[in-house]
Nucleic acid binder design. Sequence first.
DNA 1: TTGTATGCGTTATCAT
DNA 2: ATGATAACGCATACAA
Lengths: 321, 321
Amino acid sequence: MVSIKDIAKKAGVSISTVSYAINGNPKVTKETSTRILAVAKELNYVPNAAARSLKKQETKIIGVFLTDFNGAFYGELLQGIKEVLNKQGYDLIVCSGVQSHRLLPERTIDGAIVLDTSFSSEELLQYAERGHKLVVLDRELSHANVNQVLLDNKAGAALAMEYLIEEGHRKIYVVAGPEASFDSMQRLQAVRQVVNRHQPLAYTQILGDFNKSAGEEAAKQIIQEYTEPVAVFCLNDEMAIGLYNAVKKSEYKIGTHIHIIGFDNIELTQYTEPRLATIDYSKRKWGALASEQLLKLIDDKEIDHERIYVTLVKGNSVRTV
Amino acid sequence: MVSIKDIAKKAGVSISTVSYAINGNPKVTKETSTRILAVAKELNYVPNAAARSLKKQETKIIGVFLTDFNGAFYGELLQGIKEVLNKQGYDLIVCSGVQSHRLLPERTIDGAIVLDTSFSSEELLQYAERGHKLVVLDRELSHANVNQVLLDNKAGAALAMEYLIEEGHRKIYVVAGPEASFDSMQRLQAVRQVVNRHQPLAYTQILGDFNKSAGEEAAKQIIQEYTEPVAVFCLNDEMAIGLYNAVKKSEYKIGTHIHIIGFDNIELTQYTEPRLATIDYSKRKWGALASEQLLKLIDDKEIDHERIYVTLVKGNSVRTV
DNA sequence: TTGTATGCGTTATCAT
DNA sequence: ATGATAACGCATACAA
């Protein structure tokens, strides 16, 4: 490995002059600087990240932690994050799995954006307490080193439920996410409020886990209990797709016997026939805002929590009853 | 930050003893070791990655470089990579975009798996020449520090074409990927061989870019030229989906007037109606094999290039003519 | 303007 | 079995 020491030797200067030249410090003359830079290029010099990080106590790398790599909306979210980060000279790395948690306390990254159920809130608070900067996308967490950028889950769930009710539905199923999910809990809360406001209403709650299979399981129950047209609000699109597939294979028609609405507006919803109604929000904006907040946190600026607004996407998977 | 120095002070030993204890070196007695470890736990000690990397010249992190974060099959691929890597004590980080290339020469990672057109082969060879270990999934590259794990593109393309021909198709379009794509070039080569073997055949090639929009563009041309049933081999599923959507909106029926086969077997193909015929391969196995090869490379073991086998997935998007 | 010297937190060699 | 110390590559305060 060629280091500034090698450059110094070859250029006939001291290592500090090399360091200054490389970092564009105006203290060094134009001539020596260009000479040094030429030698550096010639030797194919690349600074050693470990050494620099050790000295500067920063890596200029931000970690994004995801529960898995399969999430249908991760692509856009990450794109939003990357755009903001790159503009500020930071790089983005995406991590998943408990083993990768170490990157945080070991200071391989300057901060983290977390959308990852494999972190307990206690663990995150520990890191915050040690001085690490975090932005959480999937929970509420109160600490000076933590900022939240959350979806407006309650508005979204209310939007979905009110849509179903407006279309005349009075028998409604809700397929929930895992009980540990903050998003699911918030959405459920809003669902219950709407239900209470619109009595009488036949309301049934089914436990799910945000995976497609949960939607398929829900379909079994719903089909078995079927007596008249029903509406189903799946708390995410993934489960809605699972439900959708299962219903497609049955004797019942979507948008006639069984009406479905999801949450997330993942790409797949555009391809279902009939189109799946859902709740939309800008994943890119979510990522961009999260990054901005994190950078402010790292800069020790004062910030408030932010919220991402949602809208209703109508689709023929829900029709007037 | 608490360092081994703090532990040493509190435990009343030297920093070297602390280092030994933490790294489980048997030279230190059970008693002192447990005492030191207790103090470490008490102080919430976490080793500093930068310092360790600087000293050991390794990070135990492998980088995976992707062209973007949207790829429909990245999830499974990464899962395959992660499983192998984690088992060997390595961590995985996913990167995208030219800015992140720096992680490689700066030695933030011990090696890289590349499926990323934003790297030129010259750039990769430079890194290899500097001693960095690479596994490439999207090109051929001959260097002692580089290993290839490539899809059997030719077999896949031949499988697709022969399927169309067996079903009686004699008028065939092929929608290619970008000209710079190794995968596309290989598939095209095989296509031409099959075409030559089965003359007479009306064969038309359309330039694409592996994105959905290219499939939509191709649809325009195909529809405009329509006189009799045709078959279209899109060199990836993404374009096949674009074509599919466009045809759906037209007066022509898929599997009747326009027959379609893709390549990759992405999840979406299961949801199209009729099901999209395609070429399948195990993305997880691809990732797993790539990681194994990379670890061997890092271990300075001798290895050969590997190939991932493919199979035909029939679907009603292609019917007998 | 340039050079000298110190320290960032580890690991590892050599004494003791 | 434990301790003192050098070294990894770089940035920077201070000296010249």
